[in-house]
Design a binder for these strands. Structure first.
Lengths: 222, 222
DNA sequence: TAAATTAGTTACAAATTGCAACTAACAAAA
DNA sequence: TTTTGTTAGTTGCAATTTGTAACTAATTTA
């Protein structure tokens, strides 16, 4: 006879805070590991969810009240020993959202923690987050992915900081701007500038509408 | 009450035949779709498999008698309508193997079909194979991945054909050789050459042993 | 009005890539 | 034995891309 397998979804929701890549954790309200911070997750509801993406959107909405501008499947973590309840499958999604949206959601129980300062988390959630960080590192190298962390409008110096946080390394200003130009996903917001102090203000940009739901890739990375 | 969810594994086993990228299909011995060609797959056995990779190895072994030199998770396909039996999760793996190993396995029920000549397959297997082809296209651009399709030993012109089949486009000979040199995963087999006709014979190479289980990545793609 | 600071550009050197033409090595035909 | 045809492999150089330093621009504050 076939022993039943637990089917769940977890979401690695990443954001930028203080120029650092952070993950959003949610305090668990049920056993196992009740009251501990962990990745937002939950059971797949076969009656309610048409597919796993549906389930991820529903669960993320319930746990964080957010609908992130970017959501893709990361990988599935499955096995006998990752969950004390038994053999489990977790289809893990990977989401990006601007920090301000998390703050303004006012959702209780959320913690925002830099990915390089995480303590031991329940289940295999540390390994899952590592996988997500690897993925964003890799994809940021040759795509517009980090733009989804930047919010509606942003300056190029700000976007560069975000790319640097994603990649975990500093970038050359000229090269970065050349690549953003080559990507062609940004549009200048005419007349709008932002000055963070006693110096020349920076031009404000936004994502072109055709790229709000469409990643753009570079031939050669940055 | 929670309706039960079917947990399965499918494997996209890719190979090169006549310089073309092909997928290995297996004739289904059970319903649904009995006797039709489909991706080799099967149920996860919670008692027997420690994790999903274990399950993939077991299922691939059972269906093809092969242990491929490369096996990684592709993506999970899950939803209410992909399998007539009900809400199902398929954790899909992606494997590469040299064609000669398939032929010599003598396993009955296997078909080798070029990925661009597939007819309509059961379940969402066409979509799954497309995803696998996208993955190999992408990864071949900046890694030693296609080497796993080449067998124990091979010449550079042969390896170039394999890369071209994976990428779906021709490559410049000089650039290709420069990149292989930069990758540094190959070792010359001294004195061994192979001549496919009335012309200069080609040097034979193999994978350095430290890269037989370790993908090598390029900074900039080829 | 000058100083400080960050935004953004320019010019050029260095590295990488793509291409064409070359040499090398073999078998088969003459 | 020489010539021819064919593929293997290399070389040199032009074209493109990338990295760097130094520049100009625009702002606030002293």
């Amino acid at each position: 006879m076939m022993q039943s397998i637990i089917a769940t979804i977890d979401v690695v929701l990443l954001t930028i805070q203080d120029d650092r890549l952070c993950v959003v954790l949610s305090k668990r309200d049920k056993e196992p590991y009740a009251n501990l911070d962990a990745l937002p997750g939950g059971y797949i509801h076969a009656e309610e969810d048409r597919d796993s993406l549906d389930a991820a959107v529903r669960i993320l909405q319930q746990k964080t009240s957010l609908i992130p501008p970017y959501l893709e499947q990361l990988r599935t973590f499955a096995g006998a020993s990752r969950d004390p309840r038994g053999w489990s499958i977790s289809v893990v999604y990977f989401a990006l959202v601007n920090n301000d949206l998390i703050i303004s959601s006012q959702q209780p129980g959320l913690t925002i923690c830099p990915v390089d300062e995480l303590r031991r988390l329940p289940f295999d959630h540390n390994e899952i987050i590592e996988t997500a960080v690897d993925r964003i590192r890799n994809k940021s190298q040759y795509s517009s992915l980090p733009c989804y962390l930047a919010g509606e409008t942003f300056t190029l110096p700000r976007l560069q900081k975000i790319y640097e946080a994603c990649l975990g390394e500093g970038l050359n200003k000229v090269s970065f701007r050349r690549k953003m130009d080559e990507l062609g996903v940004l549009e200048e917001i005419p007349g709008q500038t932002e000055s963070g102090g006693a110096h020349r203000p920076a031009q404000v940009y936004g994502l072109k509408s055709e790229f709000k739901n469409q990643l753009k890739l570079l031939e050669r990375g940055l």
